[in-house]
């Protein structure tokens, strides 16, 4: 009987893990800005949508193609802009956060081989609950090339406040 209980408990735990794992963050239009081959830092952008009922916290991004990936935010202060490293990105339950030009972005540091326009960059998003999500980002020249969005609104340096 005890064994049965244990088995049931294991099955229950396992199914709840599955349910939890299934509650992923939807990634929209992941892309990396193409740059000349000598450039040592590139920027990655995407939309993260959390349709679940639990907040998701992205704590790390990995890529086998770069030495390091960091989360940064471009902050405009009067006429000056600075990039501020951020430790995590909160995607609150039922909300959407955009990494986009002039705001939050992934800083892809030291490419191991040249990143060419039209190629893909493999990214793994790691969340605080242990969830890992693989993303293939397309390398392209600008946000304008996106089939989904019209115009980037060049240089508007929009800031979002949905991150905590």
């Amino acid at each position: 009987m005890k064994t049965l209980f244990r088995a049931v408990a294991v099955v229950l735990a396992w199914t709840s893990i599955c349910a939890w794992a299934g509650e992923s963050v939807r990634i929209g239009d992941p892309w990396v800005r193409a740059a000349p081959p000598t450039v040592q830092t590139l920027a990655g952008y995407m939309e993260l949508e959390n349709s679940g009922s639990v907040d998701k916290i992205m704590t790390q991004v990995q890529s086998p193609q770069f030495a390091k990936v960091e989360l940064h935010e471009s902050v405009q202060n009067h006429d000056m802009v600075s990039m501020v490293p951020r430790k995590e990105l909160v995607i609150a339950a039922g909300s959407k956060v955009s990494l986009k030009p002039g705001g939050y972005h992934l800083m892809l540091i030291a490419p191991k081989s040249p990143v060419t326009e039209g190629s893909k960059v493999a990214l793994t998003l790691v969340f605080s609950d242990g969830m890992r999500q693989d993303v293939q980002a397309t390398v392209r020249k600008s946000a304008d090339d996106s089939p989904m969005q019209g115009h980037e609104g060049h240089g508007e340096h929009g800031q979002h406040h949905d991150m905590h």
């Binding site: 740059a35 830092t41 030009p101 972005h105």
Partner: peptide
């Protein structure tokens, strides 16, 4: 500066 991946290439 070229190590600026966001605002610089946009501008």
């Amino acid at each position: 500066y070229t190590h600026c991946p966001d605002v610089c290439p946009v501008t």
